Simulated scan of single mutants.
Amino acid sequence: MSPSSRVLVEICLDDLSGVGAAERAGADRIELCAALSEGGITPSIGTVAGALQAARRIDVNVLVRQRPGDFVYTAEEVEAMVADIRAMRSLPRADGVALGFVIGALAPDGTVDLPATARLAQACGEAPVTFHKAFDQVPDRIAALEQLVSLGVTRILTSGGAPSALDGAAELGELVRRAGDRVTILAGGGVRPANAAEVVRRTGVREVHLRAMEAVPSASSTASVYDTGTREVTSEAVVAAVVASVSEVAA
């Protein structure tokens, strides 16, 4: 498979050790978050700085989501996210490591909040911009795709509005067809080593997204209400298995 036809793998994580694990296993990019148990929110500036220091090759996309819950934001929340983006853009990183941002805002009726999304995208400057899975909530995803193209969004993370990328394969394929080379469709939702290649074959996507976690014993020997005895970290083996799976898909 030629470099231009490779299927790229993005790993969603909230553990700093996962940056190195994803890079060693051959992933192309991470989506750095905090509180994935809450669906993911903006990580701290220190966490972003640590990830950018750890990355030697892998690109780093940062989720910018001010709070859990719905994606309908107040003006004050949008300005807080703009401030986060600006602060993160000033952080140092290794040559060749791209910093991007993952954003998204909806109006109360579920359509894309164009003013808020434009404000966030503008704050990203020249950095790559991904519109996150709020996209799956919009009532007309084809229309939303065209709106996001007009805003200069780089990619859209979606499962085609279905519980998983395989369930939404038909719509994902249609989104890929309509997107062409204007915006990248990033397939996420239930992607695992056992089905990643099938997702690619059935949809035509050239990028997949997943959380490659495993449970490990807690480092503490003392249990508490905050410590169940295990915690979730990024599995190098799971990342490597997905990378190997999609690398076998014919160009």
Rank of each mutant, 00 (worst) to 15 (best):
E198I: 00
T230Y: 10
G180I: 11
G96P: 03
V199Y: 05
D227F: 13
G173L: 01
A240I: 14
D70C: 10
S224A: 13
T42Y: 04
A170H: 08
A107V: 11
R155F: 09
I156R: 00
A34I: 07
S224H: 09
E171Y: 12
I185E: 08
A98V: 15
A179M: 01
S220N: 12
S37D: 15
E79G: 11
L175S: 06
I11F: 10
P128Q: 00
L145W: 06
V243K: 06
A144C: 10
F135C: 01
A219H: 11
A22L: 13
A55H: 12
E146I: 10
I103F: 05
R89K: 01
L16G: 01
D227Q: 10
A51Y: 09
V242H: 03
T203H: 04
L120A: 13
E77V: 07
S150G: 04
I41R: 02
N195W: 04
S218N: 08
A116Y: 08
P128A: 00
D136Y: 11
I41M: 06
V208Y: 13
V200S: 07
A143Y: 02
A94N: 01
S37A: 12
G100S: 10
M81H: 12
V225R: 03
R56Q: 11
V64A: 02
G26T: 04
I45L: 10
R211G: 12
C33R: 02
R93Y: 01
E248Q: 15
A241T: 04
I41G: 05
T74W: 13
M1C: 04
V243Q: 12
V191T: 10
V102W: 03
P128V: 00
F101S: 01
V205E: 08
A143E: 11
V72W: 09
I30K: 04
D70S: 15
R211K: 06
A143G: 01
G160H: 03
S17C: 09
S245I: 11
P217S: 13
S235T: 13
G168S: 07
V238S: 02
T154K: 00
D59Y: 12
V225N: 03
A25D: 15
N195I: 02
G189Y: 12
R29I: 09
C12D: 14
G110C: 12
E31I: 11
R89D: 01
H132W: 08
A250C: 13
R24Y: 15
L186E: 02
